[in-house]
């Protein structure tokens, strides 16, 4: 693969990652958001494959397969099951409305580009120049965590955060070792399962899965 084609595809994939993240802020149907997560998982796997081709590394292909299975199949599957069991499928009233969220997303992306300058300057190349995208996805994920009430949205925000971290790791190091990725993925899986149980329990107890119900737990 020539350099020009590689950079084109890389930018396309990274753009897709960022776009899917922003779209998650825009959509309020949880089914649609989970579908966007699938897209993002596929794009992340594509990023790993792309780097694997570039680095000629079989290990990265394995990482890509793992990412695809976990982030495009297993985790969205779990979320779909939660959605099917619970009645409400909409993020009813986010703490910050959609318009403001999109503006905030633009600002966060700007911040990500502004602050990752020194990181890019360490080793300028096509992959590291795409690094701000990973950071922006991290910030978007955090933003979802802070502003969305629904328990499932919290899980989505967390997965977005993790996708951002994975993308940053891929872009900064030209692919991560299989062991590291495996360890991170196991943690992630466990956490999502725990959150699933938590959401189910909350629904049983409160009848809703609004995280603010937990406020009563304070001292």
């Amino acid at each position: 693969m020539s350099d020009g084609v590689f950079v084109q595809i890389l930018d396309l994939v990274c753009g897709g990652l960022l776009l899917s993240g922003v779209l998650m802020l825009w959509r309020r149907e949880l089914v649609a958001i989970v579908r966007l997560l699938v897209v993002q998982g596929v794009l992340l796997a594509a990023l790993a494959v792309l780097l694997g081709v570039r680095e000629q590394s079989v290990e990265l292909y394995l990482v890509a397969v793992g990412v695809l299975i976990l982030k495009a199949v297993v985790l969205p599957g779990v979320l779909h099951r939660v959605l099917r069991d619970s009645g409400d499928a909409r993020e009813a009233a986010p703490l910050v409305n959609v318009t403001s969220s999109l503006l905030a997303a633009a600002l966060l992306t700007l911040v990500a580009y502004a602050v990752s300058g020194p990181l890019v300057a360490l080793a300028p190349s096509a992959t590291t120049r795409a690094l701000p995208v990973g950071l922006a996805v991290v910030l978007l994920g955090f933003f979802v965590l802070v502003t969305r009430r629904h328990a499932l949205s919290q899980v989505v925000g967390f997965l977005l955060l993790d996708n951002g971290i994975a993308a940053t790791a891929f872009l900064a190091t030209s692919g991560v070792p299989l062991v590291v990725e495996l360890g991170g993925s196991l943690d992630l899986l466990l956490l999502v399962l725990v959150l699933q149980v938590l959401a189910a329990r909350m629904r049983l107890t409160f009848g809703r899965t609004d995280m603010d119900e937990l406020q009563e737990l304070r001292d």
Binding site: V146, M211, Q215
Partner: peptide
């Protein structure tokens, strides 16, 4: 104040 969102 106990709000998860605020802590986040």
């Amino acid at each position: 104040n106990g709000s998860v969102h605020r802590y986040l």
